[in-house]
């Protein structure tokens, strides 16, 4: 099997996954003590921490919104998180773009009208990167927002999918991304089955779009199951601890 073939003869991908298999997700809410809500999520080798502060006083008076809360999202990439160390500037344009996508994803979901004139900050820290930046940021932020107790309409779960020749593949890792496989990221509201974000940055034949989107949505539903189970288990634990009888 050649190193550059994304799918081997047995139908397995370079990292041994089947085409429609997610990477292993490991997540934990409430990992940090200083923030109002936090989470840690590992998807394969991509590791991300999220911290949510707020609703709190708006830092800059000029930014106050009188009818709803202001949401800010900041993503930082640890300098050692990629295979090549690049001292990226804090305001790297690519990161800014993803941060803005995450922000716009959550704006309609968080019930911001309940907190006028205040601010909700979402900080995301990528500790190790192996593909799927947008999706992991959204998933981590969802879990952290739940942990912070910020009212949301429902979960937001994101997943990416791509296509190699005629096979749609789920949840691309970094080496697959760098092969130039078309990648589509979907953020799904799993209960109402609505899509809040859909991002495709490479060329893809219009006939294939539907199957790739369906695959990404299927992945997002699996992510939802995992996130929901994690937060329910966590709340169950908390309940048990606070009331041992």
């Amino acid at each position: 099997m050649s190193r550059h073939e994304p799918i081997g003869p047995q139908g397995l991908r370079q990292d041994g996954r089947r085409a429609d298999q997610l990477r292993n997700i490991n997540c934990k809410p409430s990992v940090l003590s200083q923030s109002d809500g936090s989470s840690y999520i590992e998807q394969g080798y991509t590791k991300c921490l999220a911290a949510v502060y707020g609703p709190r006083e708006t830092r800059q008076k000029a930014q106050i919104l009188h009818n709803k809360a202001l949401i800010t999202v900041e993503i930082s990439l640890a300098p050692f998180s990629m295979s090549e160390r690049k001292k990226r500037k804090k305001f790297d344009k690519r990161l800014l773009e993803i941060a803005s996508a995450v922000k716009q994803t959550f704006e309609p979901i968080i019930m911001t009208n309940l907190f006028p004139r205040s601010q909700i900050d979402i900080f995301l820290q990528i500790l190790q990167y192996d593909g799927g930046m947008t999706q992991i940021c959204i998933n981590a932020a969802t879990l952290a927002l739940i942990d912070a107790g910020i009212p949301m309409l429902e979960y937001v779960c994101a997943c990416s999918a791509g296509i190699v020749e005629d096979t749609t593949i789920l949840d691309l890792n970094n080496s697959e991304e760098s092969l130039g496989i078309p990648e589509l990221t979907v953020a799904l509201l799993p209960q109402s089955q609505k899509v809040t974000l859909l991002q495709l940055e490479t060329r893809l034949h219009v006939d294939k779009l539907e199957s790739v989107t369906a695959m990404a949505i299927k992945g997002a539903k699996e992510v939802y199951k995992k996130l929901d189970k994690t937060s329910r288990d966590y709340i169950g634990d908390l309940l048990q601890k606070s009331n041992p009888t």
């Binding site: 200083q34 911290a51 830092r59 300098p79 900080f123 820290q125």
Partner: peptide, 17 residues
């Protein structure tokens, strides 16, 4: 060596340089 105190780690720190 380089130390980063991001705004994530405490409400005291603000985004920026």
């Amino acid at each position: 060596p380089n130390v980063e105190l991001s705004p994530m780690c405490s409400p005291k720190f603000k985004p920026g340089p």
